Computed example of a mutant assay.
Amino acid sequence: MIDDKQLYLGLRSPRALLLVQDLLQRMRNGSLVAAMRLPAERELCEQFNISRGTVRRILSNFSEQGLLHQMPGSGTFVTDKATLLLQGAGSHQIASAADPAYVSPADLMAARLLIEPLMPQLIVQNGTVQDFERMQECLTYSEQASSIEEFEHWDEQLHAALATATHNAFFTQLLGLVNQVRDQGEWGNLKKKSLTLQNRRAYERQHRELVEALRARDARAAKKVLTEHLEQIQVNLFQIS
Protein backbone atom coordinates (compact mmCIF):
# COMPACT_ATOMS: atom_id res chain seq x y z
CA MET A 1 0.00 0.00 0.00
CA ILE A 2 1.39 3.37 -1.03
CA ASP A 3 1.62 6.32 1.34
CA ASP A 4 1.34 9.32 -0.99
CA LYS A 5 3.25 11.45 1.54
CA GLN A 6 6.42 9.47 0.78
CA LEU A 7 6.26 10.71 -2.82
CA TYR A 8 6.36 14.37 -1.74
CA LEU A 9 9.36 14.10 0.60
CA GLY A 10 11.88 16.89 0.12
CA LEU A 11 9.73 18.76 -2.40
CA ARG A 12 8.66 22.36 -1.84
CA SER A 13 8.26 23.84 -5.30
CA PRO A 14 4.57 24.05 -6.35
CA ARG A 15 5.59 22.93 -9.82
CA ALA A 16 7.34 19.85 -8.43
CA LEU A 17 4.28 18.99 -6.37
CA LEU A 18 2.19 19.39 -9.50
CA LEU A 19 4.29 16.77 -11.31
CA VAL A 20 3.78 14.29 -8.45
CA GLN A 21 0.04 14.96 -8.47
CA ASP A 22 -0.10 14.57 -12.25
CA LEU A 23 1.69 11.21 -12.21
CA LEU A 24 -0.50 9.87 -9.40
CA GLN A 25 -3.71 11.03 -11.06
CA ARG A 26 -2.78 9.51 -14.42
CA MET A 27 -1.84 6.19 -12.82
CA ARG A 28 -5.11 6.09 -10.92
CA ASN A 29 -7.38 7.09 -13.81
CA GLY A 30 -5.82 4.61 -16.23
CA SER A 31 -4.04 6.98 -18.61
CA LEU A 32 -0.70 5.67 -17.33
CA VAL A 33 -0.77 1.89 -17.07
CA ALA A 34 1.68 -0.97 -16.65
CA ALA A 35 4.63 -1.03 -19.08
CA MET A 36 3.95 2.46 -20.44
CA ARG A 37 7.00 4.69 -20.74
CA LEU A 38 7.00 8.15 -19.20
CA PRO A 39 8.09 11.18 -21.22
CA ALA A 40 11.82 11.84 -21.17
CA GLU A 41 13.24 13.80 -18.23
CA ARG A 42 13.88 16.76 -20.52
CA GLU A 43 10.23 16.84 -21.59
CA LEU A 44 9.04 16.72 -17.97
CA CYS A 45 11.44 19.56 -17.11
CA GLU A 46 10.00 21.70 -19.89
CA GLN A 47 6.38 20.77 -19.21
CA PHE A 48 6.50 21.57 -15.48
CA ASN A 49 9.28 24.19 -15.60
CA ILE A 50 11.44 22.42 -13.01
CA SER A 51 15.08 21.33 -12.94
CA ARG A 52 16.29 17.94 -14.09
CA GLY A 53 17.54 17.25 -10.57
CA THR A 54 14.02 17.73 -9.21
CA VAL A 55 12.53 15.48 -11.89
CA ARG A 56 15.07 12.78 -11.08
CA ARG A 57 14.28 13.03 -7.36
CA ILE A 58 10.57 12.60 -8.06
CA LEU A 59 11.10 9.64 -10.37
CA SER A 60 13.44 8.09 -7.82
CA ASN A 61 10.77 8.43 -5.10
CA PHE A 62 8.23 6.71 -7.34
CA SER A 63 10.74 3.95 -8.12
CA GLU A 64 11.47 3.36 -4.43
CA GLN A 65 7.73 2.91 -3.84
CA GLY A 66 7.52 0.31 -6.64
CA LEU A 67 5.47 2.48 -9.01
CA LEU A 68 8.15 3.08 -11.64
CA HIS A 69 11.07 1.12 -13.06
CA GLN A 70 14.02 3.06 -14.44
CA MET A 71 16.06 1.41 -17.19
CA PRO A 72 19.27 3.30 -18.09
CA GLY A 73 19.32 4.08 -21.77
CA SER A 74 15.70 3.02 -22.29
CA GLY A 75 13.60 5.27 -20.05
CA THR A 76 11.26 5.11 -17.08
CA PHE A 77 8.29 2.73 -17.12
CA VAL A 78 5.18 2.13 -15.02
CA THR A 79 5.53 -1.17 -13.14
CA ASP A 80 3.07 -4.04 -13.39
CA LYS A 81 2.13 -3.64 -9.72
CA ALA A 82 1.57 0.14 -9.76
CA THR A 83 -2.20 -0.09 -10.18
CA LEU A 84 -2.57 -2.56 -7.33
CA LEU A 85 -0.34 -0.51 -5.05
CA LEU A 86 -2.31 2.66 -5.69
CA GLN A 87 -5.61 0.88 -5.14
CA GLY A 88 -4.40 -0.19 -1.72
CA ALA A 89 -3.85 -3.86 -2.60
CA GLY A 90 -0.63 -5.58 -1.53
CA SER A 91 2.09 -5.76 -4.14
CA HIS A 92 2.28 -9.53 -3.84
CA GLN A 93 -1.45 -10.16 -4.16
CA ILE A 94 -1.99 -12.30 -7.26
CA ALA A 95 -5.33 -13.77 -8.21
CA SER A 96 -5.64 -17.55 -8.08
CA ALA A 97 -7.91 -19.87 -10.02
CA ALA A 98 -10.31 -19.92 -7.06
CA ASP A 99 -10.61 -16.11 -7.12
CA PRO A 100 -13.57 -14.66 -9.08
CA ALA A 101 -11.19 -12.01 -10.40
CA TYR A 102 -8.84 -14.64 -11.86
CA VAL A 103 -8.29 -14.47 -15.61
CA SER A 104 -6.64 -17.52 -17.15
CA PRO A 105 -4.11 -17.25 -20.00
CA ALA A 106 -6.67 -19.01 -22.23
CA ASP A 107 -9.31 -16.40 -21.39
CA LEU A 108 -6.81 -13.64 -22.03
CA MET A 109 -5.86 -14.93 -25.48
CA ALA A 110 -9.49 -15.42 -26.50
CA ALA A 111 -10.26 -11.81 -25.54
CA ARG A 112 -7.13 -10.44 -27.21
CA LEU A 113 -8.06 -12.14 -30.48
CA LEU A 114 -11.42 -10.42 -30.44
CA ILE A 115 -10.28 -6.96 -29.35
CA GLU A 116 -6.68 -6.21 -30.41
CA PRO A 117 -7.29 -6.53 -34.18
CA LEU A 118 -9.42 -3.39 -33.79
CA MET A 119 -6.33 -1.34 -32.88
CA PRO A 120 -4.66 -0.96 -36.32
CA GLN A 121 -7.43 1.26 -37.67
CA LEU A 122 -7.01 3.66 -34.75
CA ILE A 123 -3.21 3.56 -34.96
CA VAL A 124 -3.34 4.35 -38.67
CA GLN A 125 -5.63 7.30 -37.94
CA ASN A 126 -3.94 8.62 -34.79
CA GLY A 127 -0.36 7.33 -34.66
CA THR A 128 2.40 9.97 -34.50
CA VAL A 129 6.02 9.96 -35.61
CA GLN A 130 7.01 9.49 -31.97
CA ASP A 131 4.70 6.47 -31.69
CA PHE A 132 6.37 4.77 -34.63
CA GLU A 133 9.83 5.62 -33.33
CA ARG A 134 8.92 3.93 -30.04
CA MET A 135 7.70 0.83 -31.89
CA GLN A 136 10.98 0.69 -33.81
CA GLU A 137 12.94 1.02 -30.58
CA CYS A 138 11.04 -1.92 -29.07
CA LEU A 139 11.69 -4.02 -32.17
CA THR A 140 15.42 -3.33 -32.02
CA TYR A 141 15.78 -4.13 -28.33
CA SER A 142 13.63 -7.27 -28.53
CA GLU A 143 15.75 -8.66 -31.38
CA GLN A 144 18.91 -7.95 -29.39
CA ALA A 145 17.54 -9.56 -26.21
CA SER A 146 19.81 -12.25 -24.79
CA SER A 147 17.27 -13.91 -22.47
CA ILE A 148 13.61 -14.94 -22.46
CA GLU A 149 12.92 -12.41 -19.72
CA GLU A 150 14.49 -9.57 -21.70
CA PHE A 151 12.66 -10.56 -24.88
CA GLU A 152 9.38 -10.81 -22.98
CA HIS A 153 9.94 -7.34 -21.52
CA TRP A 154 10.42 -5.74 -24.94
CA ASP A 155 7.58 -7.76 -26.43
CA GLU A 156 5.41 -6.28 -23.68
CA GLN A 157 6.78 -2.82 -24.42
CA LEU A 158 5.91 -3.17 -28.11
CA HIS A 159 2.31 -4.05 -27.33
CA ALA A 160 2.25 -1.11 -24.91
CA ALA A 161 3.48 1.14 -27.71
CA LEU A 162 0.70 -0.16 -29.96
CA ALA A 163 -1.95 0.56 -27.35
CA THR A 164 -0.51 4.02 -26.73
CA ALA A 165 -0.48 4.79 -30.46
CA THR A 166 -4.25 4.33 -30.65
CA HIS A 167 -4.56 7.45 -28.46
CA ASN A 168 -7.68 5.83 -27.08
CA ALA A 169 -8.20 5.49 -23.30
CA PHE A 170 -9.99 2.14 -23.63
CA PHE A 171 -7.00 0.42 -25.17
CA THR A 172 -4.49 1.93 -22.74
CA GLN A 173 -6.60 0.71 -19.82
CA LEU A 174 -7.03 -2.68 -21.48
CA LEU A 175 -3.25 -2.93 -21.65
CA GLY A 176 -3.09 -2.69 -17.87
CA LEU A 177 -5.44 -5.67 -17.51
CA VAL A 178 -3.46 -7.68 -20.04
CA ASN A 179 -0.22 -7.03 -18.18
CA GLN A 180 -1.75 -8.06 -14.86
CA VAL A 181 -2.51 -11.49 -16.35
CA ARG A 182 0.92 -11.68 -17.99
CA ASP A 183 2.45 -11.03 -14.57
CA GLN A 184 0.93 -14.25 -13.21
CA GLY A 185 3.20 -17.25 -12.85
CA GLU A 186 0.99 -19.41 -15.07
CA TRP A 187 1.49 -17.14 -18.09
CA GLY A 188 5.24 -16.99 -17.51
CA ASN A 189 5.55 -20.77 -17.34
CA LEU A 190 3.62 -21.23 -20.57
CA LYS A 191 5.67 -18.58 -22.33
CA LYS A 192 8.99 -20.09 -21.24
CA LYS A 193 7.96 -23.53 -22.47
CA SER A 194 6.69 -22.22 -25.81
CA LEU A 195 9.32 -19.60 -26.64
CA THR A 196 11.65 -21.73 -28.73
CA LEU A 197 14.18 -20.04 -31.00
CA GLN A 198 11.98 -20.86 -33.99
CA ASN A 199 8.91 -19.32 -32.35
CA ARG A 200 10.85 -16.26 -31.27
CA ARG A 201 12.08 -15.64 -34.81
CA ALA A 202 8.51 -15.97 -36.08
CA TYR A 203 7.31 -13.41 -33.51
CA GLU A 204 10.11 -11.01 -34.49
CA ARG A 205 9.17 -11.30 -38.19
CA GLN A 206 5.48 -10.73 -37.42
CA HIS A 207 6.32 -7.73 -35.23
CA ARG A 208 8.33 -6.14 -38.03
CA GLU A 209 5.63 -6.79 -40.63
CA LEU A 210 3.05 -5.30 -38.29
CA VAL A 211 5.01 -2.10 -37.65
CA GLU A 212 5.84 -1.73 -41.35
CA ALA A 213 2.15 -2.01 -42.27
CA LEU A 214 1.17 0.52 -39.61
CA ARG A 215 3.89 2.94 -40.71
CA ALA A 216 2.56 2.61 -44.26
CA ARG A 217 -0.92 3.43 -42.90
CA ASP A 218 -2.23 0.12 -44.22
CA ALA A 219 -4.81 -0.84 -41.59
CA ARG A 220 -6.03 -3.91 -43.44
CA ALA A 221 -2.57 -5.46 -43.77
CA ALA A 222 -1.73 -4.58 -40.17
CA LYS A 223 -4.94 -6.18 -38.91
CA LYS A 224 -4.14 -9.35 -40.86
CA VAL A 225 -0.61 -9.59 -39.45
CA LEU A 226 -1.73 -8.85 -35.89
CA THR A 227 -4.46 -11.47 -36.05
CA GLU A 228 -2.01 -14.08 -37.39
CA HIS A 229 0.47 -13.13 -34.67
CA LEU A 230 -2.07 -13.58 -31.87
CA GLU A 231 -3.31 -16.85 -33.36
CA GLN A 232 0.29 -18.11 -33.50
CA ILE A 233 0.85 -17.19 -29.85
CA GLN A 234 -2.33 -19.06 -28.92
CA VAL A 235 -1.22 -22.16 -30.80
CA ASN A 236 2.27 -22.08 -29.29
CA LEU A 237 1.07 -21.47 -25.73
CA PHE A 238 -1.58 -24.17 -25.65
CA GLN A 239 -0.24 -26.58 -28.28
CA ILE A 240 -3.42 -26.31 -30.34
CA SER A 241 -3.25 -28.50 -33.43
Rank of each mutant, 00 (worst) to 15 (best):
G10P: 05
G10S: 10
L11R: 02
R12I: 05
S13L: 11
P14G: 09
R15P: 01
R15V: 07
A16I: 04
L17Y: 05
L17M: 15
L18H: 13
L18Y: 05
V20R: 08
V20W: 12
Q21K: 15
D22V: 04
D22E: 10
L24A: 08
L24K: 06
Q25I: 07
Q25L: 14
Q25C: 12
R26L: 01
M27R: 05
R28P: 04
R28Q: 15
R28M: 11
N29M: 03
N29I: 07
N29D: 15
N29L: 05
N29K: 06
S31N: 07
L32K: 03
V33G: 14
A34T: 08
A34K: 03
A34N: 04
M36D: 04
M36P: 06
R37V: 04
R37H: 04
R37Q: 12
R37Y: 03
R37C: 11
L38D: 08
A40R: 14
E41N: 12
R42T: 13
R42I: 08
R42N: 10
R42G: 09
E43A: 13
L44F: 13
L44D: 12
L44C: 12
C45Q: 15
E46D: 12
E46A: 13
F48I: 11
N49T: 13
I50M: 03
G53P: 08
T54C: 13
T54V: 15
T54I: 15
V55Q: 09
V55W: 06
R56F: 02
R57W: 01
I58E: 06
I58K: 06
L59E: 10
L59F: 03
L59H: 08
S60R: 14
S60P: 00
S60W: 01
F62C: 03
S63L: 00
S63I: 00
Q65I: 00
G66Q: 01
L67S: 03
L67V: 03
L67C: 02
L68I: 08
L68H: 05
Q70G: 09
P72E: 14
G73N: 07
G73C: 09
S74E: 15
S74N: 10
G75T: 02
G75S: 06
V78K: 04
K81F: 03
A82W: 03
T83N: 11
T83I: 00
L84V: 00
L85C: 09
L85Q: 07
Q87D: 06
Q87Y: 02
G88P: 04
